[in-house]
Design a protein around this nucleic acid. Sequence first.
RNA 1: GCGCCCGUAGCUCAGCUGGAUAGAGCGCCACCCUCCGGAGGUGGAAGUCGGACGUUCGAAUCGUCUCGGGCGCGCCA
Length: 586
Amino acid sequence: MKQQLQQLLELALERLQESGTLSLQELPALLIERTRDASHGDFATNVAMVLAKQARRNPRELAQQVVEALPENSQVEKCEIAGPGFINFFLAQSAYTDIVASVLEQGERYGESEVGGGEKVLLEYVSANPTGPLHVGHGRGAAYGAATANLLRAAGYQVWREYYVNDAGRQMDILATSVWLRYLDLCGEQVTFPGNGYQGDYIWDIAATLHREHGSLFHHPFSRVMEGVAADGPEGDKEAHIDGLIGQMKALLEEAEGYRLLHAAALETILGDIRQDLAEFGVEYDEWFSERSLMEAGTVDQAIEQLQLNGDLYEEKGALWFRSTRYGDEKDRVVVRDNGLKTYFASDIAYHLNKLGRGYQKMVDIWGADHHGYVPRVRAALTAMGQEPDTLEVLLVQFASLYRGGEKVQMSTRSGSFVTLRELREEVGSDAARFFYVMRKSEQHMDFDLDLARSQSSDNPVYYIQYAHARIHSVLRQLEEKGMRWDKQEGVEQLPRLVEPHEKSLMVAIARYPELLESAALQREPHQLAHYLRDLAHELHTYYNTHHFIVEDQGLRNGRITLISAAAQLFVNGLTLLGVSAPKEM
RNA sequence: GCGCCCGUAGCUCAGCUGGAUAGAGCGCCACCCUCCGGAGGUGGAAGUCGGACGUUCGAAUCGUCUCGGGCGCGCCA
């Protein structure tokens, strides 16, 4: 609808240009908006005001000429000039009844568009290190990522959803060592656990499983383990201490290939937990991309080599540095440490090159806001490789604070008292969690009210929306109980009889949906959809309270049932995109 | 210190490629069921859009400065 108006306007302006009424070098991008006030019609444009200055013309006078030049269109009832020079469009009722009919025709596809133009997008989200269970911060990235993926697909992008698994590197070594130390404890050793080790109970669980399955196969005296290991903090060097422990573990367990076994056991257990957690949350992926596979395929070395050939690397203090300052970064970055280990950054460069190599010219990464400082260096690497830096789009998700009983829930990773995503899901349910997470703009800090999310009342927006949908189905059930049936054909024909203001505004809301989806997708803002659904639910409830749907007049009845059925379809479509269920009864 | 994000009604937040009297929910006050699920609806009170200056016919929206809050500035990931 909006696009049609846009075309009409373009035609009008062209006519004015041809007739010499207007002579502009360049026409500006036309802005047509939904009006806020019904007395201003359905759509409005400010072109006259925008052009007035260039054309040195009175905006209202110019608006009048534009209106006169507009081609006839059956969907446009009239145009008015208002205020300082707005042109308001009043649509014919048929424009709306046609849309209601098309909702029923298109069903779950209603609202989809092609604005994405089939562009291939690789969307990466969550990608938390498999060193422990997902917490509520990851949950927000998961909900946001999954909803954004759905939105992009609906808008005609080809989306590939990926989770980057950091299954190589030092953090995994620390994890394996943590498990081993707990295991040694279970073997009866008096273990002093390193400050930098992973403290959570889940480490004990993995260790216990290993102990049960392998007995004391990996047992070494703790005193032996500590030989030559630097002191732990705060007096000693925490990093050196943990690196020493890792080294000892690798040395002592090599023969039995125990190191690899423990490493794999820890990884598989935790990654398995993450996968299950996300699956239960309705968050899906097309691929779980392994960092180790990248290493083994030599992609990381190739990336480093490429930088080397370009002359963007230099050596200093035994390490290999990428001169990222050349490409807008604040400081240069290490890609290979003095101990020969490649940094996380090195494999991340390789990963992004790999994505491009797979034919994705658009990479959308969703990161926690604490990683924002990381953006310039990855962009720098892409630029250094001859890529356009905007092939990478990074969406940052701020953290969420939980509130229970009006009090902020204290979370601390260090003490292990963080709230896991699983605990959150169990407390408030998946629907509420998914909706609450995307209800706020992602870069906005959010306060997550657990009591509200859990409450089954109208205060809770999730229930409010789901209730609107259930209510429609309740009406359909009532209809059947009364021995009547919905004649869709007749209903569509009777739509022009729905002239009540409530009916008009419900139709407007329905017509707005495709525009809304486009906007939400282009801006990667699922919260727009969440707000829209709330508005739509409000329209439905208001209508419900004012008018009866199951009326004696058969034609009117079918018309109304047709209208609310279209609304029901939108609740299903919209909630599905957000990963929330649309129950028929509650 | 430098960089990024955020300051809008008592609370939680929309609105931000500049536009017509600044919106919603919660909370508060007053109402609405012989009727399809009241898990609903109607009305009301409530805001110097953190502050200042600037650009503009027009600024919550853009620019500069400033105050306040969060985060980041490792050979960690």
